[in-house]
Design a protein around this nucleic acid. Structure first.
Lengths: 104, 104
DNA sequence: ACGATATATGTCAATTTAGTAATGAATGGA
DNA sequence: TCCATTCATTACTAAATTGACATATATCGT
């Protein structure tokens, strides 16, 4: 692996290393949403949501399409869906382990 | 997904969002290494490497075992191996796309 | 063209993080 | 016991990041 690829991967993980962005991704995995809808759903301020969206967009994780004055975002990367289900699986596994440790 | 799980996931990604830590993981995926060996391989300073290792350890990605005065680290999480191969695959895919865009 | 709405961007303070040097703790050998 | 080695931790500086506010840009209807 080259230095460039390592940095690219780190950049990708950095885009995912923020609870607000994970919430946004979670919402967009359910259905494509405009910024307004996303604000409604998540409760984030417009400027912040917009900034987080631009970060996810630059990381290549989202797709952006204009609809009049609205902008609709969607999950562009099939990799992201797989990744999310993997992470969920891991966390369930850990939750189970914690539970088992508690009961032993 | 609860807020706690979202934050836990963000924390996990944050642990991976650093080139130095990805380099360390890459080295440890090849073989288990002591801190000294890791320093030798990566060229990082001792204190720096130690800090990165502690972050990966706290994230549950590495295992730690003492051997006399030495400490050997290894990849504890099968999830991590899968994740790395996925990320590598994604980046190769993107590299191909860039190449194709260049030639079209 | 004008006003209203949707989205993006710039700036600021506060927080977090990486890297370095120095120090501390633990282990093994003389 | 004393010293040398290995690793962890602390204190510090510089840089990056977040969220809030204000402002700019773009599009639509009138």
């Amino acid at each position: 692996m080259t230095d460039g690829q390592i940095e690219e991967a780190a950049h990708l993980f950095a885009a995912l290393a923020e609870p607000a962005r994970l919430r946004i991704i979670q919402a967009l995995l359910g259905e494509d949403l405009t910024v307004s809808e996303l604000i409604e759903v998540t409760g984030y301020r417009q400027a912040n949501a917009s900034k987080h969206l631009s970060i996810l967009l630059r990381a290549g994780l989202l797709r952006r399409s204009k609809e009049g004055t609205f902008v609709r975002y969607s999950v562009s990367d099939p990799f992201l869906k797989k990744l999310c289900s993997m992470v969920c699986g891991r966390m369930e596994h850990h939750a189970e382990e914690r539970l088992r440790a508690l009961c032993s």
